[in-house]
Every structure is written in C-alpha cells, then in structure tokens.
C-alpha cells in the first residue's frame, strides 16, 4: 500500500514539472536536473529495493541513508548552480544599470 503512495507522489512530481515546462512557466533548460531527479523518484517508487542493492555496492549498511546522501548531494549541487547563476546575473545587472545611467546622461 505504501508503495502506491510513493508511486503517486513520484508521478505527480514528474508530471507537475513536465506540465510547467509545457505551459512555458519553467524553462526547458532549467528543468533538466529536476526531470532527472523526478525520473529517479519514479524509478525508486516502483523498485524501492533497488536502493538497498545500490547501498551494498557502496558498502552502506542502511539503504535509506544512501538515499539521503544522494538527496543532499543533489540539493547542494542545485544550490551551488543557482548561487553561481545569481552572482553572474548580479554582475550583468550592475553592468546594465551603469550603461543605462551613462546613456541617460549622454542623451540629456
């Protein structure tokens, strides 16, 4: 029964992301890693014991803790990517604002 809940949640997340991209509310490029993550969620909800097998490969005793590690690594990666993007955009906004200010003065 629990498995069905997880399948429903995973499929909901997957289709929610796809729908947002289709409605052009989320960019195709930015959606890539979220779609990858949601597909992994869908896979794990159908085959929950695959995480235990993977844990054995990594010599991790308790399967779900490997899931947490992967989750944290993924979120850190997304967070880092976003921070990098914010910094880049901040630079560009400053550059744009300065250019607009100069143009405004020149066209006075």
């Amino acid at each position: 029964m629990k498995k069905i809940y997880f399948i429903i949640i995973a499929l909901f997340v997957f289709f929610y992301i796809i729908t947002e991209v289709r409605k052009k509310k989320f960019s195709v490029k930015e959606s890539f890693w979220w779609v990858v993550a949601s597909l992994i969620m869908v896979f794990l909800s159908f085959f929950p014991y695959s995480i235990d097998k993977l844990a054995k490969v990594f010599h991790v005793e308790y399967g779900p803790s490997l899931l947490f590690v992967f989750g944290i690594v993924f979120l850190t990666f997304i967070n880092f990517k976003n921070s990098k993007k914010i910094a880049e955009q901040q630079e560009k906004i400053i550059e744009l604002a300065q250019q607009v200010a100069i143009l405004k003065e020149e066209t006075k």
Partner: peptide, 14 residues
C-alpha cells in the same frame, strides 16, 4: 544532450 532534451519538449508540446 541539450538539443535532444529540448526536442523532446517541443515534440510533446501542443
């Protein structure tokens, strides 16, 4: 990778 991914979305878009 990006091209194939984008094409998938274009194809599923109405």
């Amino acid at each position: 990778t990006e091209m194939i991914y984008e094409i998938i979305f274009i194809l599923i878009q109405s």
